[in-house]
Design a protein around this nucleic acid. Structure first.
Lengths: 255, 255
DNA sequence: ACAAAAGTGTTGGACTTACACCCATGC
DNA sequence: GCATGGGTGTAAGTCCAACACTTTTGT
């Protein structure tokens, strides 16, 4: 392919649409029918139109792919390596979208068949996502993980009404850790404006029915939800003793 | 001006370069000598070159404006209103840069004279920054304020060696609150990897000389620096009593 | 009855806050 | 001496991790 130095720059919006299905973090992908990267999986996205903001582009693509509107959508980062798209100079604005568990998109089952795929698999180099979409996905997951700590983003993964256990599953799926359900419950209930009780209770399933809640008005968590509490004593053996309870070590991630 | 629907889209990087000078948060601005917005102040920035990433553009502009390299530089957001630049379709990627107190740029005192200006003044509508640079600056300040809480970003405002008091001034300038110097000291010293002692002490100034420190390897703060502790009992009257010590209320900012 | 899931109570420890008090320097 | 700023000690309160225990359902 030609590499003209003065070719026109094009701008796209690409979306990492995340959800939690059956306790696993999943991402919406499309199957590319055209070059470049024909046959590869990619994140949904498209070109910015002349009289559109990039945010509008992202919202439009989201609607076109999932039929959803009003879900959480935020800018992630700009990816602008001159060679990221072999067909020319294309800069993309990556977005993180968070959706509840949908009844599978399969929008018309047209050429670009969309499907939910486990994030773990898509982040594996073997998945070989098109363009730099592996990087975009990694950034999206990292952002979502972090925002669970200090925002109410987790509720965006749930439907309009949900139980505390469902909410906890979101945390556990993203953090890959078990949380103590008793402390978790107290924590979210004690955070003003996180949950609004509906008065309803779940009916199906074994065990004591759970209360149902709706999203409350709060968006930030003070104090934050801490990323500790790894339990899961699979066998009845004591977990490693954690003598001088190391809260958390200062890591490298700049934020 | 003409409005052609298919005109070429151009991409720029704009920088909000922040510093703390004399206890006040300041931003580097340039004076525009050309249309549009001739005569207005603006944030430094420029076009993305054909074989350059946007991050490279930002780093290059930073170097050209301040001579600095290696300072903290991060993507903030994309601003893409189709009418944000009356001269055509220009999408910009805004960056936050954090620099120590420089000996004033005044790079050659050429046409685009650069200068530090207090952020308060530049955020006032009367300052009338060019384009949407007021929005960009507001986003930059908000980001910096937030990151002080849970990262070691504050140290990026200081020179290579600094005292705890200097570091505290950064927090106080950005948060507009006084912090208790005794608790602040313990907090930062107790955070592993935040500060590395040099063994040196300050010489000038009245009062007991302070220890000098360098930035440590840590980048995140766990637990975070809390945004409380407003004191400043200017006169020896009791501050408002804060009966049932309200930690913080869950606000609206999504993060 | 038993397993499973939801929910309450309680305790030790970590962290914060507020402030008394001591140290080192310039004038 | 004394004002000024740097630094240590400490006690009360808040929050959290851990876990015993109770409640409510399905089988």
């Amino acid at each position: 392919m030609t590499r003209r130095s003065h070719e026109q720059l094009r701008l796209t919006a690409d979306l990492a649409i995340l959800t939690v299905r059956e306790g696993s973090l999943q991402v919406l992908t499309v199957h590319r029918g055209n070059e470049p990267f024909r046959g590869h999986r990619a994140l949904p996205g498209g070109f910015v139109r002349p009289r559109e903001t990039v945010d509008d582009t992202a919202a439009r693509e989201l609607r076109e792919e999932t039929g959803l509107a009003g879900v959480h959508l935020e800018q992630l980062a700009v990816f602008s390596d001159p060679d990221r798209d072999p067909s020319g100079r294309v800069v993309t604005v990556a977005y993180l979208a968070v959706a509840p568990d949908l009844p599978v998109p399969e929008a018309g089952s047209d050429a670009t068949a969309a499907s939910w795929e486990p994030v773990d698999q898509m982040l594996d180099p073997a998945a070989d996502l098109a363009f730099d979409h592996g990087q975009i996905l990694a950034a999206a997951v990292e952002r979502a993980r972090g925002k669970l700590e200090y925002t109410t983003l987790a509720a965006a993964f749930c439907g309009p009404e949900f139980t505390i256990a469902e909410l906890r599953t979101v945390y556990e799926s993203l953090w890959g850790a078990r949380l103590d359900h008793r402390n978790f419950s107290r924590k979210v209930l004690g955070t003003d404006g996180f949950l609004t009780p509906t008065g309803q209770r779940t009916s199906s399933g074994v065990g004591r029915p759970a209360m149902l809640y709706r999203r409350g008005p709060a968006t930030t968590l003070h104090p934050p939800m801490l990323r500790h509490s790894m339990d899961l004593p699979v066998s009845p053996e004591r977990r490693t003793t954690r003598t001088a309870g190391p809260r958390r070590v200062n890591g490298e991630h700049p934020g």
